[in-house]
Write a protein that binds this DNA or RNA. Structure first.
Length: 751
DNA sequence: ACTGTAACTTAGAACGGTCTCA
DNA sequence: TGAGACCGTTCTAAGTTACAGT
């Protein structure tokens, strides 16, 4: 948590100052880089950065060069290690991929944010009305304002009662003696009213029961056969287990992919006995269909279980949850996110992953590192087994870790998002974004200036930052080639990922982006940019191959170091958070109209949310049943329409009737009919709204932005302002995660 | 200065329970 | 009351960032 605690420093001057906690980084600043790829760069060098008055006017583009050299005169690329392979591979793989996605209808996020000319640079109108918030960093400090908090603040230390729900009986009665007061859920702990740790310590006390391991392999019944080359063959348990992993995936298109099959087969053979190994030499000759059928039958059987059986399983799960799903951290019982260890299986990477199909091995106690307090009751390994290590590191938040065998990375068991430790961090993230709001104008002016810099690296940095800001791109770390799918973010964009159009569809200086980002989700976007940016891009691309880095003098660490100097705590991803949240706020303001009813307001909310999802390129595959469910809805709407016209007709005749008869009864009938019409109108409206919402949402996923990018206080404030129950916006889990925001945001909260 | 890695956040898909409507 | 739509939950991969070690 170091570096997070400067919040009370003033925010007005959030940049340029280098504060203590970051001084040590200065030495890393601005050095020229190693030479990594000589040949290519040498060639490029001569022609590249010409002489210039760095004016950037298109007419004199060629004079623009020369000045752009590195100070040392080198023009070597900063980074471009891996690439040879990429050439061939990308041709086929990326092409295919994209084609496919196009077919799927997966494509361009349209851009929501507007161009600089209009209101991209949100002017500093912020917090005019807010007095309380004047200094919004301090918001992150525990609110000392409230007197009662002061005493509470002390409590973290020890006295608050530990709150294990003493019993498993989930309904009502409580057996822990503290009668009625305890009745329901113990009143929720408001960690956000307490003081935070400030020294990198994450907890003082941590106790838990360790992980739950995957159930051991349960061998197939003997009537389920495996066939090799047409002949039945009994596999050793080890080989059989791995075979079942494959069999379970048979319906998935993964298993048709070459790399998947190759990787699988290689790893499978490692598990075979030598006899099996000699026999089984060709995956094509393997017949897993009986296994596959067996598992399908099993899952059918599971669905067909009786209520009692299902209940039993549920109870067992609940028991496991109560026993292993919680820990005690600093006197509070907190939910653990993932207390079950990932079971063995075949690795499914996303996109074109070179390792797909590899065997993800079973994790044993001997692989596990346990982290807990020294003075806690340590978790026990299973009988006769040992942990790899037990440590007591309170500078980290995880309870259990192990090293995974596919990438060699470390996996963790950590707490639920509703926990204090996650919530504080989340809150802090939004506070950092709000600090950015205060100085974003300055930063934008600065990078616009930097577009004219004499130094190439500065121009690149400035253009990259512009993209990150304007398009909410991810930072784009370098990745090790061949270890992962070929995806990029901003700093790792390659020349092949953008196209420049001096003119396109009546717009000037259009850049077309087309690349695979995180999770191999395609980013496609055509954006008009400022002339200077355009010219710079032309410059960056000169004499480069398609698979060369666009920003050859930039990487995420350089960029983030720069950002750190502009504002304490600023990194590339803060721009995503900031732009997402500010967009939500603006859109809500623009879209919500007071007269609308609740469903319509919620539609507006969803639209605002959608604007953010589009900005962040949060896509999803259109639901398989999309068309159908759309049709169903339409049928319903039609039916409702009919119903409405019927009702109207009835109303009319009732009115006529009443006019003639003038008696109480007929008047009453009119009233009833009126009500009916109204009700039906409302229902119809609701359905129509639903249809619109769904249609617009076809391939956009709202969840990710809602959960990770939108300051929940914006939503809470909006709910309060318009009298919308917060449950309409956040489900139970989300309310738990955002409890802090729900508790603290008033209707006038301003991001 | 640069690499490697630990720690933590963000991500979409799969799963599975629940609700709804014929 | 059963099928299917829907929606929340779970799963775990894939990012970002800080920082240690050389």
């Amino acid at each position: 948590m170091s570096g997070d605690h400067s919040h009370n420093e003033d925010q007005i001057d959030c940049g340029s100052r280098v504060n203590d906690s970051h001084k040590h980084k200065d030495k890393y600043k601005e050095k020229e880089h190693k030479h990594k790829d000589h040949k290519k760069d040498k060639e490029r060098e001569k022609s590249k950065y010409g002489n210039s008055d760095h004016k950037d006017s298109s007419d004199k583009k060629h004079r623009d060069k020369e000045k752009m050299k590195h100070k040392d005169g080198s023009t070597d690329k900063y980074k471009d290690k891996h690439k040879e392979k990429r050439k061939e591979e990308k041709m086929k793989s990326l092409d295919v991929k994209i084609k496919k996605e196009k077919e799927n209808g997966f494509a361009s996020p349209q851009h929501v944010k507007s161009e600089p000319e209009d209101d991209f640079y949100h002017s500093p109108k912020q917090s005019l009305k807010r007095v309380r918030n004047e200094d919004n960093d301090s918001e992150f400090q525990p609110k000392k304002i409230k007197t009662e908090n002061d005493k509470k603040a002390k409590k973290r230390k020890q006295d608050e009662d530990i709150k294990p729900k003493k019993t498993k009986n989930k309904k009502g009665e409580v057996t822990d003696g503290k009668k009625k007061a305890k009745k329901e859920p113990e009143e929720k702990w408001k960690w956000w009213e307490e003081e935070r740790y400030t020294d990198g310590v994450k907890w003082k006390f941590l106790e838990h029961k360790g992980p739950v391991f995957a159930p051991p392999y349960d061998p197939l019944p003997s009537n389920v056969k495996f066939y090799y080359d047409g002949k039945t063959m009994k596999l050793s348990p080890e080989a059989e287990e791995v075979a079942t992993f494959f069999a379970k995936m048979l319906d998935h298109e993964y298993t048709t992919k070459d790399i998947f099959r190759k990787n699988f087969f290689k790893d499978w053979r490692k598990e075979m006995t030598s006899e099996e190994k000699t026999k089984i030499t060709d995956l094509k000759k393997c017949n897993f269909s009986e296994m596959s059928e067996y598992f399908k039958a099993q899952s059918e059987a599971r669905k067909a279980m009786t209520k009692e059986e299902k209940l039993k399983i549920k109870e067992e799960n609940e028991r496991l949850l109560q026993e292993y799903g919680f820990c005690i951290m600093d006197n509070h019982r907190e939910r653990i996110a993932n207390f079950r260890i990932e079971p063995p299986g075949l690795f499914r990477g996303r996109g074109d992953h070179p390792k797909m199909g590899m065997l993800k091995r079973r994790i044993r106690p001997e692989d596990i590192i346990v982290n807990c307090s020294k003075d806690s009751k340590h978790p026990e390994p299973p009988p006769g087994r040992k942990w790899k290590e037990v440590r007591h590191d309170n500078k980290v938040t995880w309870l259990v870790s192990w090293t995974e065998n596919i990438q060699g990375s470390i996996k963790y068991i950590m707490l639920n998002p509703s926990s204090r430790i996650k919530g504080e961090k989340d809150w802090q993230k939004y506070e950092t974004a709000r600090r950015l709001k205060k100085c974003v104008d300055r930063i934008r002016n600065q990078y616009r200036e930097d577009w004219k810099s004499k130094e190439m690296r500065i121009r690149q940095r400035a253009v990259a930052l512009y993209f990150i800001d304007k398009l909410a791109l991810r930072a784009g770390n370098e990745k090790e080639e061949g270890e992962t799918a070929d995806t990029v973010g901003c700093c790792s964009l390659r020349v092949e990922h953008i196209k420049l159009y001096p003119e396109n569809d009546g717009q000037e200086y259009v850049v077309e982006f087309d690349f695979l980002g995180k999770d191999s989700i395609r980013y496609y976007n055509k954006v008009p940019v400022e002339k200077r940016v355009f010219k710079n891009l032309q410059l960056f691309m000169e004499n480069k191959e398609p698979d060369d880095d666009l920003f050859d003098r930039l990487n995420t660490s350089i960029l983030n170091k720069h950002l750190q100097e502009l504002m304490d705590g600023l990194t590339a991803k803060v721009f995503r958070t900031y732009n997402a949240s500010i967009t939500l706020q603006q859109q809500l303001k623009a879209l919500t109209s007071a007269e609308e009813n609740i469903p319509a307001k919620i539609l507006s909310y969803n639209r605002a949310n959608r604007a953010v999802a589009i900005l962040c390129n949060h896509q999803r595959a259109p639901p398989k049943t999309f068309e159908k469910s759309m049709q169903n809805l339409q049928t319903k709407i039609d039916a409702k329409r009919d119903q409405l016209s019927d009702a109207k007709r009835e109303l009319k005749s009732a009115k006529a009737d009443a006019k003639v008869r003038k008696d109480e009864k007929s008047k009453k009938t009119v009233e009833t009919k009126k009500k009916a019409v109204q009700r039906i109108e409302e229902q119809l409206m609701k359905l129509e709204v639903q249809a619109t919402d769904r249609e617009e949402n076809k391939q956009i996923a709202l969840g990710t932005s809602k959960l990770n990018y939108l300051d929940p206080r914006i939503s809470v404030a909006w709910c309060k302002k318009w009298g919308i129950p917060v449950e309409k916006i956040y489900n139970k889990t989300q309310r738990e995660k955002f409890a802090w925001a729900i508790d603290m945001a008033d209707d006038d909260f301003e991001f």
